[in-house]
Design a protein around this nucleic acid. Structure first.
Length: 569
RNA sequence: GUUCUUGUAGCUCAGUUGGAUAGAGCGUACGCCUCCGACGCGUAAGGCCGAGGGUUCGAUUCCCUCCAAGAACACCA
């Protein structure tokens, strides 16, 4: 439809690159509206009503439209003919051409030797969905979870392991042979880090030992490095398990330790660029610009004691990614509170020409999930809630609400419902909005919830299954009958708009909202028409065909959000 | 303290090139099952879009001031 308006504008000698036709907010006047005439009037100094009328004169001849009219200061109202809608449905094309563009997505951010907590949820959900959206729209992607696997936290864990098991061969400096297997569980690692971390704050001697241990690791001392690798294996396995539950998969499980290898090379490079300065004993890259309202502090590259920092590794990660993958864009799906930090790193990357001006470094920050009281999510004893515990509580609630008549696979169904619940609730607000976790509300079958979407999708599926049992066929749309039928088809025509908006905003709320609208629209249609009991075969076929398309679109969208649909619920 | 973000129905939130009568969900009130899953559907009430000013044909959207809440602000990650 946008193409048709574009062509008409071209005939009238108006050039527009981006043209938006939206659903009408005056349904009494038309199904869609185009407001561009008023914008054009401004740039071309013409009368908007005249432009709109000239457009109308062209478009009205096209049988695609049932009605074209101009209202108010230049609104163009459009309604589509039945034939055009039927044609649209009978030649459904929901696919996108491959685009020659590589987008690198950084999301997840799990820490080795620490369990994933609720703060990791949004990054995984949003990142995974954005990746799938990119793929669907034809972009190539590489995803990396960017593990926190280096530096002081690991030094602390290693030190505490040594304190508890001084006899391990890993700690014997002159040992040359193979290292025998040792008993380390992820539960142990989870317990060790908080313990060591607290101890380091209270005990200066302990902290010094930890720093020494960190240094040993960074210097690649044989036993320590081997033990670190051991820890990595155990921890990664655990991390993957939870990401699997969330249907979140990465091409790369790289981390800070991989970027670390590029630090010396990068520092060399930076030296040649002549942009590193001394400041209070540290080495920094100034990144403030004359127009900044808030002076952006320089990016710290090297501490006064010679050590490197978070931002150094982050810059090295960009260095590494561009060297190896050379993507057109790198998206960071991280907590929005890190924005300043990333602004510094990005500016440093451009200033040093590590990234070329055409390479987009994108900060896609997200809001926090808070507890139901609106404050940061804590467990009863004040600690950070583990992600598994959160998922389990949702699963338990889902199981409680699951239809009693279903006897088989209750556990796996509850799992699917729980994940859909968490994901849908997480993706419903705009990416940047903070939201409160509310178990009751999210698990409810009423309203904008995962369970409602799943229920409606399953309803479509079982309707089609039942139709098959009756040997009913559905090849095409033959007629449109019923107001809800038309409403449902019109909604389908928004598909492309929704995906593109979502992509541009890098937020999934357009998609979750659209899924809800599809579900309610389908349910209205379903209530209005007793499809399987319809005697008019053409009509029944048309309805079934429509259901099959709606189901297909639903599945596409749920796949993008990484939500599974169970067989029953 | 400085800067940024947010303030939309009782509650939770949508609302991107400025556009017509500001939209959803929950909750509330009243309806709809001899028929494909009622775990569903319909109807209604509910708003000085934080306050005040400005820009223009037109502002929830852009600019300024104020009020309120949150966040970030170099040797932690």
């Amino acid at each position: 439809m946008a193409d048709k308006i574009k062509d008409a504008l071209k005939k009238l000698d108006y050039e527009v690159d981006d043209l938006v036709v939206t659903e009408s907010n005056r349904p009494d006047l038309g199904e869609f509206q185009y407001n561009g005439a008023m914008a054009l009037a401004k740039t071309y100094h013409k009368n908007p009503v005249e432009i709109a009328n000239m457009l109308k004169d062209i478009l009205v001849k096209d049988s695609f439209f049932k009605d074209v009219n101009v209202a108010g200061p230049g609104f163009l109202n459009l309604s589509i003919s039945d034939e055009a809608l039927i044609n649209y449905l009978n030649n459904p094309d929901f696919s996108y051409a491959k685009k020659n563009k590589l987008i690198f997505l950084d999301y997840g951010g799990a820490n080795v030797a620490k369990s994933l907590h609720v703060g990791h949820l949004r990054s995984a959900n949003i990142g995974e969905a954005l990746k799938r959206l990119c793929n669907y729209l034809g972009y190539e992607t590489i995803s990396d979870t960017h593990l926190g696997d280096w530096g002081r936290p690991l030094g602390l864990v290693l030190l505490e392991l040594k304190k508890r098991n001084p006899s391990w061969l890993y700690f014997k400096e002159d040992y040359e042979g193979e290292y025998p297997k040792v008993e380390i569980t992820s539960a142990l690692l989870e317990e060790i880090y908080p313990y060591a971390s607290t101890k380091a704050k209270e005990d200066e001697e302990y902290l010094k030992e930890a720093q020494l241990m960190t240094k040993k690791l960074q210097n690649g001392e044989k036993g320590i490095y081997a033990l670190w690798q051991e820890i990595m294996e155990i921890s990664k396995k655990d991390i993957k398990k939870i990401y699997d539950r969330l249907n979140t998969h990465y091409d790369l499980y790289k981390g800070e330790s991989d970027a670390e290898k590029y630090v010396p090379e990068m520092l060399d490079y930076l030296d040649k660029q002549n942009i590193v300065e001394e400041s209070e004993g540290a080495k920094v890259i100034p990144v403030s610009l004359p127009n900044d309202k808030l002076e952006i502090p320089p990016m710290l590259l090297i501490k006064s004691d010679g050590g490197i920092l978070y931002s150094t590794t982050e810059l090295a990660t960009i260095y590494e990614r561009i060297k190896i993958n050379n993507p057109s864009e790198i998206w960071y799906i991280v907590d929005k509170r890190q924005e300043l930090h990333f602004t510094q790193v990005f500016r440093a990357a451009y200033k040093s020409k590590i990234a070329s001006p055409s390479q987009k470094l994108v900060f896609a920050g997200f809001g926090t999930m808070n507890g139901s009281d609106g404050k940061p999510f804590k467990t009863r004893d004040g600690g950070v809630m583990r992600l598994t515990d959160l998922l389990e509580s949702v699963k338990k609630e889902s199981l409680k609400r699951l239809n009693e008549n279903i006897l088989e696979n209750r556990d796996s169904i509850a799992e699917d419902i729980a994940i859909s619940t968490v994901k849908y609730a997480d993706l419903l607000p705009n990416r940047e909005t903070d939201y409160n976790f509310d178990l009751e509300k999210f698990c409810s079958l009423d309203g904008k919830t995962g369970p409602y979407i799943l229920y409606s999708t399953i309803r479509m599926k079982s309707l089609l299954a039942k139709a098959s049992e009756n040997n009913y066929k559905w090849q095409e749309m033959k007629m449109i009958k019923g107001s809800f039928t038309r409403e449902l088809i019109l909604l389908l025509t928004n598909f492309d708009n929704v995906l593109n908006n979502s992509f541009q905003a890098k937020s999934l709320n357009d998609i979750t909202d659209y899924l809800y609208r599809l579900a309610t629209s389908f349910n209205r249609f379903y209530t209005e028409n007793i499809i399987l009991k319809e005697n008019n075969e053409d009509l029944r076929e048309s309805w079934l065909y429509l259901v099959s398309i709606v189901y297909k679109v639903n599945k596409i969208l749920l796949d993008i959000l990484a939500i599974n649909v169970p067989e029953r619920m």
